[in-house]
Computed example of a mutant assay.
Amino acid sequence: MNVTRAIGANARVEGFCDPAFQPVLDAFLNNFEVHGEVGASVCIHVGDRIAVDLWGGHCDRDRQKPWDRDTVSVVFSCTKAATALCAQLLVDRGALDLDAKVSRYWPEFAQAGKEDATVLMMLNHSAGVPALREPLKQGAFYDWDYMTGRLAEEEPFWRPGTKSGYHMTSFGWTVGELVRRVSGKSLGAFFRDEFAVPLGLDFQIGLPATTTKQIAPIILYKPGPDTQLTEFIMALVGAPTSISHLSYMNNGGHDPNSGLAHAAEIGGAGGIANARALADMYRPLAGSGSVLSQERIDDMSRVSTETDRDETLLIPTRFGQGFMLSMDNSSLPPGSSVIIGRHAFGHVGMGGSIGFADRDRGLAFGYTMNKLGGGILLNERGQALVDAAYGCMG
């Protein structure tokens, strides 16, 4: 059924929702009415059909511009899945070997204790370079060669392969540089040519300067007086030499709303997309055809690293080869979990966006928004949509 639903005096939710997925529409509306959603989109494919394609609210903080069908926003770490797919395609083609040392493709990386780091370690967050110790120059995130050079020189925080710690933004340059070295194309160009164009994705890693897209500015999260602080947040604020602090705060003045950030190829946190693009990216991985072999999908979605205490996030985490797996940390403060299907794989983005594939259900899911939520992983808005989708499928 086509949807046009008012959510306040000058905003509405529009799109399509299969009647069987009415609970997803209800949860989407509830996010605006109860949880302070400003602008957002959600899209769900089940097999070969679209079950949900909704958008609504406003794309600006002042709530003057409507979020329309094609509005996009920065999806932060959801970009890691796109970066990982580029590497996985090269693995599938035999051009990149998961068990090979990184030095085979990127000789400069083999220094300061990283000589034995492998391609697999780069993908599963065990390579030991989740952050950089010394301050980054202003605008560092927008300078690919500077960031890859600094990471090549960095001494690892642990011997590669012996621990797991979320490579928050560094993932985009470590894995992305492998893609660049092997393919001969920049990460953004390779993703565009091999995934975005063939699949018709409105998803860019590095936005062209000539774009006329409506990009919804990110609205930062502000904790309230009753917010439960996670151990990660306490380290972020109070432990300036910790991995948690350095991985997030040592960023060279990065502003995700700036034109420089939009144009840069920030493969760990800078992709620009909407929910439809995320769901369409995962659709071939959920069983509706594929740009990757089934053998590769099977391998990359298995548990590759699992720990009771992630060196960066300081919570239990589970990763495949570049993808997050279900992490039920319900006993910890809100925002510490991402609860998806047992064999599902995907990635969350800072503030609560998410895209994933669940081959058991033939489900491809995407959710994006402009107002960030609290926590490290999913907050109540994204998880409510995920729960509603699974509930509709029994």
Rank of each mutant, 00 (worst) to 15 (best):
N2L: 11
R12G: 11
E14L: 11
C17A: 15
D18S: 13
P19A: 13
A20L: 14
V24H: 11
L25Q: 09
A27Y: 08
G36T: 07
A40D: 01
H45Q: 09
R49A: 14
A51Q: 04
V52C: 09
G57C: 12
C59K: 10
C59P: 00
R61M: 10
R63G: 11
K65T: 15
D70G: 10
T71A: 10
F76E: 07
F76Q: 08
S77K: 07
T83A: 11
L85R: 00
C86L: 01
A87E: 09
D92L: 04
L96H: 07
L98T: 00
K101S: 04
K101W: 01
K101D: 01
W106N: 05
P107M: 00
P107H: 00
P107R: 00
A112N: 14
G113Q: 04
G113T: 02
K114M: 12
A117G: 02
T118M: 00
V119H: 08
M121A: 12
M121S: 09
G128Q: 02
V129F: 12
P130W: 10
P130S: 07
E134V: 07
Y142F: 11
Y142D: 02
T162C: 06
S164N: 06
Y166I: 10
H167N: 05
M168S: 12
G176S: 06
V179I: 15
V182E: 07
V182P: 14
S186L: 09
F190W: 13
F191E: 07
P198G: 03
L201Y: 09
D202H: 11
Q204L: 14
Q204W: 14
A209C: 05
T212Y: 06
K213A: 15
K213N: 07
Q214V: 12
Y221Q: 06
Y221D: 13
P225I: 07
D226I: 07
T230Y: 01
M234A: 11
L236W: 13
V237I: 15
S242D: 11
S247E: 04
M249R: 14
G259P: 03
H262A: 07
G268P: 15
A269P: 06
A269K: 06
G270S: 14
G271T: 11
D280R: 14
V291E: 03
R302I: 00
R309H: 12
L313S: 00
S326E: 11
M327H: 04
D328T: 03
L332N: 02
I340W: 01
G341S: 08
A344W: 10
A344T: 13
F345I: 00
F345W: 04
H347T: 01
H347L: 02
V348T: 15
V348I: 14
G349H: 10
G352Y: 05
G352H: 04
I354Y: 12
F356N: 05
R359F: 05
R361I: 05
L363N: 08
L363A: 09
L363C: 10
A364M: 04
F365N: 03
F365S: 02
G366E: 05
G366Y: 04
G374T: 09
G375E: 01
L377M: 12
L378I: 04
G382M: 02
Q383C: 01
L385Q: 08
A388V: 10
M393P: 03
